[in-house]
Structure formats: structure tokens, C-alpha cells
Computed example of a mutant assay.
Amino acid sequence: MKLKNLDLNLFVTFDAVYTHRNLTLAASALNVTQPAVSNSLARLRDRFNDPLFVHAGRKMNPTPLAQKMIGPTRQALRLLQAGIEEEDKFNPQTSDKVVRIGIGDIGETILLPKLVERLHRFAPLMKVQAFHVPRRSIAKKLALGEIDFAVDIPLPPNPELQNRLLMSDKQVCVVGPSHPLAKKSSLSLEAYLALSHILVSSRQRGSGAVDIELGNLGPTRNIMVRFQHYQAAFHLVQRTDLALTAPLQLTRMYNCHVFSLPLAVPNLDFYLYWHKSTAQAKTTLWLRDLILEAVA
């Protein structure tokens, strides 16, 4: 038997009948009519192929199956009720929630320090866990509650997800402080193409946004190194004559020389995603606003 095919409200009725051993008393406790209780009990009996309760005078005694079911049923109902009450009583100052975020290299570097700083101030007991989540798995993990939020570039439209633009950052070219071009104020397309480049991508293959734009123009750049993370790329820039194209906000964290790109490249847009089933939860609303404020 699969729970997705069963109305979970029936277990509330089951618990009431087990407690009162009488349909009339169970109906009164649930504030419904006796026929409604009888109907729910009939549906459960049909599902489990068991009478669940048998009449003994004015009382209804549970069958062996009902006796086995009552413990797990009450435990599940208590957990559900506790979750509802916890949400109703949400207080950032006392909440010890673990906030799980699916996030990549750029978001982790730019966003998470600001978020953790604010959490320490406004929700000192909350904890943060960050994960790399493959783009194709984000919707599923949000639906299953394995993560609370995701930060990523624009995803394909999904009616199950809600989102807000988190940040939009332009891309620039950087070289190390001792690079031969480090004293120049601008960079021509010819000079850009003459450089040896580092490409940062979480994928094993494929080009970046710059290469797509260059492909439209015709020329290609010389990519010497492919990394997964910008931190390693910036460290390499500082020690070699390699160039790196990166979001502007990241460049402020490193000792490097910054050039505007000599070609039009779209900004890097990052969105905050959450599942629609949690959209009105007090915890989600509070955390969402805190994250948006962190990067404002």
C-alpha cells in the first residue's frame, strides 16, 4: 500500500476511534458528524482489508492489526503536529534550524559569508550547510526537502519552483599584478585573444559565455587551464601570466588588475530558488528576505 494513494486525514479518525472506542464520541472529539466518521472508517477498512474495530456492546474493540497500527500512527501524528506548531511559533532568536542551500562556487564565495554574518546576528542558533547540487537535480531536491534553497543561473521554467533575482554581475578580465599588461588601463580584443586563459566551469566540457560570444564573432581564445573553482584560478593568476574572465565582485577579493572586457558579454544573473510548497512558511519567508538583504 502506498501512502500517496491514501488520505492521511483518515488516520486522525482512526486515532480518535481507537481512543474513544465509540463512533459518537470520536465524532464529537473531531467536531464532525458520526456518518463522516463511519465513512472514514469504512474507507480504512477497505484499504487494509480488515475490520480494524469490532463491536462489543457499546464499545468498539481494536483488532490485532489496529493494535499494531496505533503506535506508529500516533507517533507520525505527533511529529506532524510538532512540525506545525514549530512553524507557527517560529522565532529566529531561538530557532536551531539547519539551513541547507544548493549553491555553486560564485554564490558560495559572495553570498554565504554575508548570510552567515546576518544569521549570527539575528538567528544565532541557526546553522548553514552548503552543497553543490547538479542543475538537473535542483527541483527534485527542493521538492523532497533535501535543500531549503538553491542559488543558480536561470533555470528552465518549472511551475513547482519560485524564484527571485539575487544578483547580476558583469564579467571582467583579470591578470596578476606583475603581468606585462598590468599597467595598462584598457584591453583591446586583439590583446585579449593573445592572452593565455583560465576557464572556470563545474562542467567537464563545454565553453563559457565569453566563448559563445566569440564564436558569434569568429575568433577563439587560447584556454590553457580549466578549473572547477575560482579561488584556485585567482591564485594561479597571481603566480603566472595567465588571464581569467570572472565576475567583478570576485575580483575585489584578490590582488589583481581588472580590465573591462573588449566584447559584449551578458551579465551573470543568479537567482534564489525555493519550492512552492514552502513559499508561505514563516521560516522560508524570513530566510528568503534575509538572503535578499544580504546581497542588496
Rank of each mutant, 00 (worst) to 15 (best):
K140E: 13
P262N: 09
H132A: 12
N31S: 14
G83V: 02
M126D: 02
L236C: 14
N22R: 06
Q171E: 14
F53D: 01
Q34F: 02
L161Y: 04
K276L: 10
P154Q: 07
M253F: 11
I291S: 07
S185F: 07
T283V: 12
L199W: 02
L189S: 03
P113Y: 07
K4H: 13
A294I: 01
L8D: 09
K114T: 03
L261F: 08
R164I: 00
D50A: 10
Y254K: 04
N31V: 11
L155W: 02
Q238P: 06
P72D: 01
I291G: 03
T24F: 11
G145T: 06
H197G: 07
R58F: 05
S277D: 15
P262V: 01
A56K: 13
L214N: 01
M167Y: 12
S186E: 12
L125M: 14
L292S: 09
K68Y: 04
T278Q: 14
S185R: 15
L189W: 04
L261R: 07
Q67C: 14
L41D: 09
G145E: 06
K183Q: 15
L111Y: 05
P159D: 07
Q75Y: 03
E160C: 05
I84M: 13
A233G: 02
P156M: 10
V128D: 08
Q34M: 14
L41G: 00
M126N: 00
R226W: 04
T73G: 01
I101Q: 04
H120N: 15
L142W: 00
H132T: 13
I110N: 02
Q93A: 15
Q231P: 05
T73N: 07
S168Y: 09
L3S: 09
M126H: 06
L142N: 07
I103C: 05
P177M: 07
I101E: 02
I291A: 08
A82Y: 07
K140C: 06
V133K: 01
D241R: 04
P180C: 00
R288W: 01
G104L: 14
H20Q: 08
E108H: 07
S202G: 13
H197V: 04
L65V: 05
T73A: 12
L248N: 00
N255F: 00
K89A: 15
Q204G: 15
L41Y: 00
L193Y: 01
T63R: 10
F90V: 07
V225Q: 00
L112T: 14
S186V: 02
Y230I: 01
K2E: 12
H257D: 01
L119H: 02
R239W: 08
A232R: 11
I84P: 03
N39C: 06
V258A: 05
A66S: 11
H179A: 06
F131I: 04
D105E: 08
E85C: 04
T220Q: 11
T94R: 11
F149I: 08
L23W: 04
K2W: 02
H257P: 05
K183T: 13
V99C: 01
L8S: 12
A130K: 00
K184L: 00
P156N: 11
L41V: 15
H120D: 15
Q238H: 06
